[in-house]
């Protein structure tokens, strides 16, 4: 479902004398249905860079990345948007929302974008928020006022509210207490068992051991500075 071939990434910093940073070369990776692949490597080795190229918010300078058959290198924006709508899910480390929008609507939004009616979308959103221990009295409030751990759970609820066939998870269990961490890990396990192709960054080693079917070390793709 995710195929990364000979991918290179460089950054050109025009406002710092045009410095060119070659950060990645010859990256290769394959994630199939029902697999949960964990990216490992030291901080700065390029785990997040690789994830962002697959999500589409970083450009790909060479090589090819395909997600569910869609080529992301040089893809038209609307093709990436279509891919994200129904196929490619993402749990980032930060929650980015329009201020003032109620939590329930934030979580229901991906379903609404897919054409699910309000009542059904909000009922599914409510179910997943309940599972993640976000009490119903918080649902009408904007998550921008929530604690870090609560925001992270809202983010996870949003990322799991639709059964995306491909999922990218960036530190989904960071800043969670033990009980919520267990909930999230079982949700990841269920997604994997229903056949989703999952690629994640987990700094928590025991989390990795619990959900990952395989690890890929990205240090080999890093370009020596």
């Amino acid at each position: 479902m995710i195929t990364v071939r000979d991918v290179a990434k460089r950054f050109t910093l025009h406002n710092q004398g045009g410095a060119v940073l070659e950060v990645m070369a010859d990256a290769r990776l394959e994630v199939g249905p029902g697999e949960c692949v964990g990216l490992v490597g030291a901080s700065g080795a390029g785990k997040s860079t690789l994830m962002r190229m697959i999500w589409g918010n970083y450009r790909i300078n060479a090589g090819s990345i395909q997600v569910a058959g869609v080529e992301l290198a040089g893809a038209a924006p609307r093709d990436v948007i279509a891919l994200r709508r129904g196929t490619l899910g993402h749990v980032s480390q930060f929650l980015r929302v329009v201020p003032r929008v109620p939590t329930l609507a934030v979580v229901a939004e991906p379903l609404r974008t897919l054409g699910v009616d309000v009542a059904e979308a909000e009922s599914q959103a409510g179910a997943i928020l309940t599972r993640l221990n976000i009490p119903e009295r918080l649902w009408p409030l904007s998550p921008t006022t929530f604690s870090g751990g609560e925001q992270q759970r809202v983010n996870i609820a949003r990322g799991f509210v639709h059964p995306w066939p491909v999922l990218l998870l960036d530190e989904p269990t960071a800043s969670l207490d033990a009980a919520n961490r267990a909930v999230v890990l079982s949700m990841i396990g269920e997604a994997r068992d229903r056949g989703a192709a999952i690629l994640g960054i987990f700094h928590d080693e025991s989390a990795r051991a619990q959900v990952c079917t395989r690890l890929v070390d990205v240090s080999g793709f890093a370009v020596a500075a």
Partner: peptide, 15 residues
Amino acid sequence: LTDQVLDDPQHAYTQ
């Protein structure tokens, strides 16, 4: 794409 232009700007002016 909006998040691509903002997260990985290519042109000096956008940066």
